[in-house]
Design a protein around this nucleic acid. Structure first.
Length: 566
DNA sequence: GCCGTTTTCGGCCCGACTGTTTTCAGTCG
C-alpha cells in the first residue's frame, strides 16, 4: 500500500510551491494528498483500474503524477522543486511548531536540512538567534522532536474509543459541563486516530477548561485559551477540547468531526449561497444565524439530509445527501448475532458455555462457534473427532439451556495454498456455519492469491470468508489480490465477506466493504472473539461496515438464525 | 491544479493560539 508515500510527496510539493509563492496550487496538492491519505483502498489498485482519476481533488495533472509515483516511487516534478530547496520538508514540518516558512528560514539561516540538523541546532542554541524565532520556539522544537519520535504511530480505534469515553465520563463527573461529545476521526469510526477531539458546552468555560487541564491522566498542557485547550496525556495521546456556547454546539461538533475534505466541501456549498459556515454556526449574507445548535440543522439549511459521521469523507456523501439517496446505515440494534467465535477447544480462553452465557447476556440471539480446525494444530486446532464432539455439546447446550440464544455449530477452516480446504466436505456439510480463512502462505503473488480466494468462496460449504485481506494494522499489510474478482465470485456464490471486528484487523476495511457491496456481495460482521470481553469488538466492526455504506440488508448477521443456518 | 447552485473560466474555508512582535506572521486544526 503506497498511499502514505504518494500523499507525502504531494504534501511536500504543496509546501515547496507555497514557498515559491505559487497561489492555489498548494491547496490543490494538499487536497489530493488528504484524499489519498484517507483512502482505505491501495492507490496502486486504483491506478491500475484508472479509478484514481475519480478520487476527489485529483484531476488530470495530479492523476498523472500519482501514476508516476506508483510506478517509479518518485516524481520528477517533485525532484525538480526539491533541487532548489534540498531539505526534508515533510519530516521537518511534521515537527510541532515548524511549518514550511520556518523550515525554509532555518535552511537559509542555518543550513538545516533534516531532523538531525534541526536537533543539533536546537541543542546548540542556534535557533533562538534566528530573527523571528526565539528561545521558546527553540524549546518547543526540542519537545516536538522528542514527541515525534515517541508518537509516530496512530492509536487504534479500539484503544482510542474507550479512552475518549473515560475522559468524557471524568469530565461529566466534574459537573462543569452542560454537554460533551467526542468528535474527530474517532467519531467517524476511522480504524486509527491521531488525537482525540472533544466538544463541550459550559456556562463556565474557564472553570471547565481548567478542570480538563487538571484531569489525572494529563501530562502536559500544550495550549489553553477561552475556547480551546489542548493537552497531552501520559501515554502520549493529544486531546483537544473545544468549549462553545450552546447555540453553537452543533456547528462545533460538525466542524470538529470533519473530515477536513468534507468540511471544505460543505463550506464551499455555504459560500456558494453567499453564506458562511464556521464552528459557531451557519450565517447568511446578512450575518443572521441560520443554524448551529444541532448538526442536522446545518445540513438541512444547506439542502442536505443529515450525513452520518462515518460517511463524511467527501467521497460522494454530499451528492447522495442532496439527492436524498443516503443509505440507511446498519445500526447496532439490527445486529442479531456473531458468526465468528472461538472457545478453549482451540485458541480461545473461555469454554463454550462461558462464551454462550456472555453472548446471551449481551442480547445476541445466536453465535456460531468457529474454532480453528486441523491445520492450526500449532494453536490447538480441533481435530475432526473433536469437532463432532463439540457438535454434540452444542446440541446439548441448545436443548438444556437455550433460552434466547441459539448456538450454531461451525468451524474456521483453513484455506490451503491451492484454494482447497483442510477439512473433508462430508464434515463441513454437517455444520451450520463454515468460516474460511487464509492463515499461511501469505506471500503468494496476486494471481495465485486471487484464484485461491475465488476457489474458497466458491466452495458450496463456505459461508463466510474471514479477514479477507489478512492485514494487521501496524504489523503487516494485507495480501495482494484482485478484490473485484473475489467480490464478484463471493456475490455469485452467496458467500459473505467478513468485517473482522478485532481492532487490529478491521478487515475488510470501509473502502473494501463499499466495493464488495457494489459488487453485490454480502457482509458478515464477526468479532473473532477469543474471550467473552471480545464481543464488545462488534462496535468497531459495525462502524467499519457503516464506513462502507452498509445497510442492514447487506449484512448477513442482521438475519435470524434460521435463515442463516437453514 | 481542481472544479461546477460561481458550471469550462474564475473562483478557491476559516478561526484560535502562540511567540515574537508592538500590529502580526506562522502554525495548527
Amino acid at each position: 500500500m503506497k498511499n502514505a508515500h504518494v500523499a507525502r510527496i504531494l504534501y511536500e510539493v504543496a509546501d515547496l510551491l507555497e514557498l515559491d509563492g505559487v497561489a492555489f496550487k498548494p491547496r490543490a496538492y494538499r487536497r489530493a494528498a488528504q484524499s489519498i491519505e484517507g483512502l482505505a483502498t491501495p492507490i496502486e489498485a486504483l491506478v491500475e483500474s484508472g479509478e484514481h482519476r475519480e478520487i476527489p481533488g485529483v484531476g488530470e495533472a495530479i492523476a498523472e503524477k500519482i501514476a508516476e509515483i506508483v510506478e517509479t516511487d518518485r516524481l520528477r516534478y517533485h525532484d525538480e522543486l526539491k533541487s532548489r530547496l534540498p531539505i526534508d520538508l515533510y519530516a521537518l514540518t511534521r515537527i510541532e511548531g515548524v511549518g514550511p516558512k520556518t523550515a525554509k528560514r532555518l535552511y537559509d539561516e542555518l543550513g538545516i536540512r533534516d531532523r538531525v540538523d534541526l536537533e543539533r541546532a536546537a541543542r546548540d542554541g542556534q535557533i533562538r538567534a534566528v530573527k523571528g524565532l526565539g528561545a521558546r520556539t527553540e524549546e518547543k522544537i526540542l519537545r516536538g522532536l522528542a514527541e515525534a519520535q515517541r508518537w509516530e504511530d496512530r492509536t487504534l480505534l479500539g484503544e482510542a474509543l474507550p479512552l475518549a469515553r473515560r475522559l468524557i465520563e471524568e469530565l461529566e463527573a466534574g459537573g462543569t459541563f452542560d454537554r460533551l461529545a467526542a468528535a474527530g476521526s474517532l467519531r467517524r469510526g476511522r480504524e486509527t486516530v491521531g488525537d482525540l477531539d472533544i466538544v463541550g458546552v459550559s456556562s463556565r468555560p474557564a472553570v471547565a477548561a481548567a478542570a480538563f487541564a487538571s484531569l489525572p491522566g494529563v501530562a502536559e498542557v500544550r495550549m489553553s485559551g477561552e475556547t480551546r485547550t489542548s493537552v497531552r496525556l501520559a501515554g502520549g495521546m493529544q486531546v483537544d477540547l473545544r468549549i462553545v456556547p450552546a447555540e453553537s454546539f452543533g456547528a462545533a461538533w460538525q466542524y470538529f468531526t470533519g473530515s477536513k475534505a468534507h468540511n471544505i466541501a460543505l463550506r464551499a456549498r455555504a459560500s456558494a449561497r453567499g453564506w458562511k459556515l464556521n464552528e459557531y454556526g451557519l450565517f447568511d449574507a446578512a450575518g443572521r444565524r441560520r443554524a448551529g445548535a444541532d448538526e442536522d440543522g446545518i445540513y438541512e439549511a444547506l439542502g442536505l439530509s443529515g450525513i452520518p459521521p462515518e460517511l463524511r469523507e467527501d467521497d460522494g456523501e454530499i451528492q447522495a445527501a442532496e439527492a436524498g439517496r443516503l443509505p440507511p446505515l446498519v445500526r447496532d440494534d439490527e445486529l442479531r448475532g456473531d458468526l465468528h467465535v472461538h472457545t478453549d477447544a482451540s485458541d480461545g480462553r473461555a469454554s463454550l458455555a462461558e462464551m454462550a452465557r456472555a453472548a446471551s447476556a449481551r442480547g445476541w440471539s445466536y453465535i456460531a462457534i468457529t474454532d480453528h480446525a486441523r491445520f492450526s494444530d500449532a494453536v490447538g486446532g480441533v481435530t475432526p473427532d473433536e469437532l463432532r464432539r463439540q457438535q454434540t455439546e452444542i446440541a446439548a447446550w441448545n436443548d438444556r439451556v437455550g433460552g434466547g440464544l441459539r448456538v450454531l455449530s461451525g468451524v474456521e477452516v483453513n484455506i490451503l495454498p491451492d484454494g482447497s480446504l483442510d477439512l473433508p466436505d462430508e464434515l463441513l456439510a454437517t455444520l451450520d456455519i463454515v468460516v474460511a480463512a487464509v492463515h499461511s502462505h501469505f506471500r503468494q503473488d496476486r494471481d495465485e492469491m486471487t484464484s485461491r480466494l475465488v476457489r474458497a468462496v466458491e466452495s458450496p460449504h463456505v459461508d463466510i470468508l474471514a479477514h479477507p485481506t489478512g492485514r494487521k494494522i501496524g504489523e503487516r499489510a494485507g495480501y495482494d489480490a484482485d478484490w473485484e474478482s473475489v467480490f464478484a465470485a463471493a456475490a455469485s456464490a452467496q458467500t459473505a465477506l467478513e468485517v473482522n471486528a478485532n481492532p487490529v484487523r478491521l478487515d475488510l476495511d470501509g473502502g473494501l466493504v463499499r466495493r464488495a457491496i457494489r459488487a453485490g456481495a454480502r457482509i458478515a460482521i464477526g468479532t473473532d472473539a477469543h474471550d467473552p470481553s471480545h464481543f464488545d469488538f462488534a462496535e468497531f466492526g459495525l462502524l467499519t461496515a457503516r464506513r462502507g455504506w452498509a445497510t442492514a440488508s447487506d449484512i448477513l448477521n442482521t438475519r435470524p438464525a434460521q435463515e442463516i443456518a437453514g
